[in-house]
Amino acid sequence: MMSASAVVFYILSFFILATGLLAVTSRKIFRSAIWLLFSLTGIAGLYFWLQMEFVAAVQVVVYVGGIVVLIIFSIFLTQQSGKDLPAPLRSRAIFSVLAVCAGFVLTCVLLRGYVFVPAGHSGIAGTGVVDASVGNIGAQMLSTSEHGYVLPFEVISILLLAAMIGCIVIAMKPKPGDK
């Protein structure tokens, strides 16, 4: 007899895998995007199940509300996006299956090597159980102590700033006087 929590986990996992599979096999590009959306929402559900609410919400904001919307926009703006895609080449299909298998094996190996700590232990140093409250995440993000993330945070900020300026430069119309 499985506990209710385990049932929820298996339902969520099945949902994520099934929609992920549909996303890569669908022949209509817009449907692919929608299946991807459902898959990402399922992952957010999994985070909720793990009681990592902040990460789940960020998953929804960034991936579902941001990235999938951008994907859908680019689909809208492309020509003939309503048509069925051509069937992939046999060789390409075989290689993608191989790549998937390799990724699966890699994940399994990594998971095997990881020491899981049962939930419920308070945040003792070294056990890996962390305090996932929003306040703690924020403090860690800007912390300059040993395990602080201020350097990656700032580096990513600079990267995003560079990307933004790049976008503006590309989108800028040259003035009539310029060459």
Partner: peptide, 15 residues
Amino acid sequence: IGVLYISAVSSLSVI
């Protein structure tokens, strides 16, 4: 995460 949840889920309605 009340209000964050709200703004996260409301971004779904555009889909």
